[in-house]
Structures are given as structure tokens and as C-alpha cells.
Nucleic acid binder design. Structure first.
Lengths: 312, 312
DNA sequence: GGCGATGATATGCGGGAGATATCGGCGGGC
DNA sequence: GCCCGCCGATATCTCCCGCATATCATCGCC
């Protein structure tokens, strides 16, 4: 039995007339008679009563037609669902990101993507750049947003694009001597207790700071100590308590609250770029759609990806 | 898109291997490749990733396969349901019957039928022979059980078979002079107030009684009066109150309760036969199955129906 | 009882599903 | 590192079946 038989039976039930049903199906009348007869033969039951007043389904026909309608609807849904999935309109996208990405990039990006793809289930998880890269390679994430392109084992299986840049700023509590200053110098920072991202979780950020503050940044030669904090909110929180001077991306200003003060650092220093990564071999249409949205939101991403057609 | 495409896609998903899936489908590998390719072309989306480790559905493929499974299940259900309906295992049977049929015939018949056809919805309604015949012709019933084959307009469109015979008995209250007598004569009945079925509802019964008691059965020439009662229970109830002598089928004994007495009538008189009727042109498989059961329960019915194959 | 309408049957044709043969490509193994 | 083997794609042919046209059978109906 093929879908054709179902379509023919339904058309015949609709028109109650072989000739008109055949016309509606775009075929001649004899083939319709044959196919209906073949269907009845296969089922071992008469589906239609041919009377002088028209063609009417038997009890078996009624039962058959109910199921046939449902079956064809399922087939149509199969086509529709497959298309939607292929266009990335349904599915799942698991995104790992560092906390600071939630300050500027992600709000607009996620908002736009969610509006355009309401049936995609988003899985969002804040995590360090290192952990998100590992999770990406382990297949636990589909997209990662972190600082600096992942390096090391497996990095060649990932594609990374720059989606944002931030200069380094310092954040202090209101009671700190720096409070009220527009900027502080690198030399001044060398004498302070610093609150920075953990070196093992954000190695590129740590390396950049180490290069800035001198190789002995965490050696006893520096006056102040080091406190590591997992994300920007913790850095700001600790700084506001007066524990030390927090160092982080300029977008931290958006999260700075009362009782804190943000200084520019002179000379200007760029932190590692905000980078979006995904598996190079991932052909997920949802990922492709997400990258399309990213292209729209972040100027320059299009050029980095070229005409890479992920998915399809 | 045809059902074939769904079957092939599901087989491929099951075996994750074109060659083995084709073998399982009983075809060669190239046609499977072609059909899958045609399906993907029609959908405009790739359904399977061909990797070195096997063939795996894409996101679109997963979505498609879920619906495809459902669609094929519906098609199988269509076949199954049509077959069951054709065999009379599902559907509806509306039965109209006179109250006395519930005393002997219907308990065993309905019990047996319901056991063999648990998915047939039975519609049962007690009604007079006249009304059930009309309801049958109006399409409001499928089977009627009454006394005497229906006559009059439309009767030629009905088929009737005898499913039972009953002699006439009289029922009286415990205080009636007949109580304790094994039998009463027709002459004795002529002088009594009689409780009988309504002449307009059960014309054949009434005619038989009129013939028995004399043409002037309801004329002033008879000593006693006439009370009409719609069913056997009402006849018994009225008789037990001492209103008169109830006349009805011998199966009334099964319903006679304390405070009533049942006498045979001499000489023995047969009431019109218990008759089962249905529309001659009714090809309902449920009706056919019901008649089959009736054949099993009522000896002699088979001979009356001959090899009439109702339904199918 | 002839006639028109409707579904069934007869027959020929073309497309497509499937078979066989072969190619291309990737990975594993010695 | 190179070769072999497995697997899916492609090429080509065949044959069946689905559809078309033509015709028949049947049943109401005027």
C-alpha cells in the first residue's frame, strides 16, 4: 500500500464520484477505479459502495478514511518538520559563555535569535573560556563565547570568530584612593592588590595581564597580591568591598553598581577579543541560523566566516 | 512522496548502512541510494550524514523520522481498522426489542455477541414491534426484535427470521380465583377483564387474541373489559394488583414475581413468533456478525437466512 | 424500451523503480 | 606510507506498473 492509495480513497470519498474524483486528482477515471480496486483487494474488504446515487464509503471505508487522513497529515508534517529543522527553525542550541558576554553581546544576539527562531530550545550556561572549549569538543555545547580563540588539543577542530573587543579597565570600591580618578597607570596598578580572572580558566587573559604588568606579576617582587575571581560580577563585588583593584573588560561598566568606581587604564590595553567558537564539522542548521544572526548583529563576522555555508 | 520513501528512510536509520538496509528491504543498494536521494531532493534537505562510521540522520532527518514512523503506524492502523470493521468487530449496532425478548432470547444472544465483539458499541432500546419496524426503515435501528414479521409499507425492504415461539399464558394476582389453577380455558378468559398488549403497537398479537376470544373481543358483548399495557412487566404488575387477567407469552414465567400466578391456557395457543428483522439492503458487517451469532444461538435461523452473506 | 450517465474492462505506452556493473573515496592495516 | 577493502554514488539497462484512450456493461429514467 502506498500513499497514493490513501490520497485516491480520500478524493473518492470527498467527491462521491469516480469521474470527478479522478479529475480532481488530475488522472483519468479508469486508473482511479483500478487503484481503488487494488486497495480493496489488498485490504480484503470493500471500502466503497457504488450506488446509483453516488459512491459512499462502507463501514470499513469510514474506518479506513479516518486513519488515512491522519496518515497523510503525518506525512505532510514530516515534510514540514524536516524543512523547519533543516532551516534551523527547530532544534536545540547549547551555548556556553563567559559572564561578561552577557553584558553587551548576548542580550541583543539572543533576543534577535529567539525572536526569529521561537521553536529552538536554547540551553545557556555561563562558564569559563577553557571549560566552554572543552565542552564544545566533548559535544556538550554547540557554541562557546569566550576571550581569545581556544588553543591546544582539539583546537583545530574548532572555528572561532571575533565578535567583540574590549579594553582593560580597573574597578575599585568608593573608598579606594583611585575612586574619582578618570584613569590609572599601569605603574600604579603594579603596587595594588589585583583581582583578576583565574589563570587556569582564562589563560589568554592572564597572559595578557602578565605581559602588561611585567613577567613577575604574581611573584613576590610585586607589591600587592593577587585574588582570582571567576567572573566579572565577582570581580566587581570583591573590588567594591575594598579587597583590591579589579581588572576586566570595559563592558564591566555596564555592571558597575553604586559604591564602585571604574577607571580607564593608561596606556590603553586591549584584552583578548571576545570570540565565538563552534565545531568546524558541525553541520547543524540551528548553528548555521545562529551564525547568520551573529553575522547580522556583529559587523565583521561575515568576513571572517566568508561564504561558509554551515548546515543544509 | 510515497510511503515507500518513509519505509526506506526508516530502514536506513535502523541499519545505519545502505547495503544492510537495502538487504532488509529486499532490494539492492543502488535503488535505496536513489530513493533516499530523491526524498532529500524533494524535501530540499539532507536527511542523513554519510560518514565513515555509518549513516546517521541529521537534525532534519530525526524530525522527519519521528513523523514517518507515526505516518506508517497510521497506515498500518488503517489496514487493521478497515479489516476489523469489515469483519464486524468494530462499529455500532442499534437494537430495538420488545420487553419479553429480554426474558429469554437477548440475554444469551447479547452476551455471546458482546464477548465475541467487544469493540462493537451496542445501542439497546426497548420498543414495540410497530415502532421498531418504523425505526428500522427510518435507519434509526439496525435490528429489531418483535412479535410477528412486520407488514405494511416498506415491509418488503425488511428481512425477518423467526427466533423464538411462545404459547399464550395467563397471569393473575394471588387473590384471583384462577390462582392455583394449572390452566384456564379460553371460555373462562372471555368473562374476565383482560390486560393485553396495545392493539396499535402490537397488531399481530392483538389480532391473534381477537381471533381466539371471538371477533367481539373488545365489543360490549364480552363480559369483561380490556386494559392495554405496553410491556410484559406492566402486564404482570397490573395483574398482580388484581386489575384483571394478564395475557402474554409463556416466557413471562421468568418474570413472574411473588404475588402472581401463571396459568396455561387451554387449548394451547401460539402467539405470533418472536421475529428478528433487519433492512434487506443493509450490508453492515456488524449486522452480518450479529446474524452469525444469532445463527449460533437460535437453531433454525441458519436455514431461514440460507447462505445470505450479509456484509463484506 | 431507448438513452444517457457511470463505473468496469481492455489494451497500449511511457516513466520510474530496481537490478547489474562499475566508479570514487576514505580508513585501516601490514 | 602505501595498498587493499569496504561503502556509497553513478551509469545503464530492463521490466513492471501506473496512466491514457477506447470500449463495454449496467442501471435509472424519461
Amino acid at each position: 500500500m502506498e500513499a497514493r492509495h490513501l490520497r485516491y480513497a480520500l478524493a473518492l470519498a470527498d467527491h462521491q464520484h469516480f469521474g470527478r474524483a479522478a479529475a480532481a486528482l488530475g488522472i483519468a477515471q479508469p486508473p482511479l477505479s483500478q487503484q481503488i480496486a487494488a486497495l480493496e483487494r489488498e485490504l480484503g474488504a470493500r471500502l466503497f459502495d457504488r450506488t446509483a446515487r453516488g459512491v459512499f464509503p462502507t463501514a470499513a471505508g469510514e474506518a479506513f478514511l479516518v486513519r488515512a487522513r491522519q496518515a497523510l497529515a503525518e506525512m505532510a508534517a514530516a515534510v514540514s518538520d524536516a524543512g523547519r529543522a533543516a532551516r534551523g527553525e527547530t532544534g536545540r542550541l547549547r551555548l556556553g559563555f563567559i559572564g561578561s558576554a552577557l553584558l553587551e553581546l548576548l542580550p541583543s544576539l539572543l533576543n534577535r535569535f529567539a525572536r526569529g527562531h521561537p521553536d529552538v530550545r536554547l540551553g545557556l550556561q555561563e562558564m569559563s573560556t577553557c571549560r566552554s572549549a572543552a565542552a564544545l569538543l566533548a559535544g556538550e555545547l554547540d557554541v562557546a563565547v569566550g576571550r581569545g580563540a581556544p588553543r591546544g588539543a582539539g583546537a583545530e577542530d574548532l572555528v572561532s570568530v571575533t565578535v567583540g573587543r574590549d579594553r582593560l579597565v580597573a574597578v575599585v570600591g568608593a573608598a579606594h584612593p583611585f575612586a574619582g580618578q578618570a584613569e590609572v597607570s599601569v605603574e600604579q596598578l603594579r603596587g595594588e592588590h589585583l583581582i583578576v580572572a583565574p589563570a587556569d580558566e582564562e589563560p589568554l587573559v592572564a597572559a595578557r595581564l602578565a605581559a602588561l604588568l611585567g613577567e613577575g606579576a604574581d611573584s613576590p617582587a610585586r607589591t600587592g597580591g593577587i585574588t582570582e575571581a571567576r567572573d566579572v560580577h565577582t570581580i566587581i563585588g570583591l573590588a567594591s568591598c575594598g579587597i583590591g583593584v579589579g581588572l576586566g573588560p570595559a563592558c564591566m561598566r555596564a555592571a558597575a553598581r553604586r559604591g564602585t568606581w571604574v577607571c580607564e587604564v593608561s596606556p590603553r590595553v586591549e584584552l583578548p577579543e571576545l570570540v565565538m567558537s563552534f565545531r568546524a564539522r558541525d553541520r547543524s542548521p540551528v548553528l548555521a541560523a545562529f551564525l547568520d544572526t551573529t553575522r547580522e548583529v556583529c559587523p565583521g563576522v561575515g568576513g571572517q566566516l566568508g561564504d561558509r555555508r554551515v548546515g543544509r
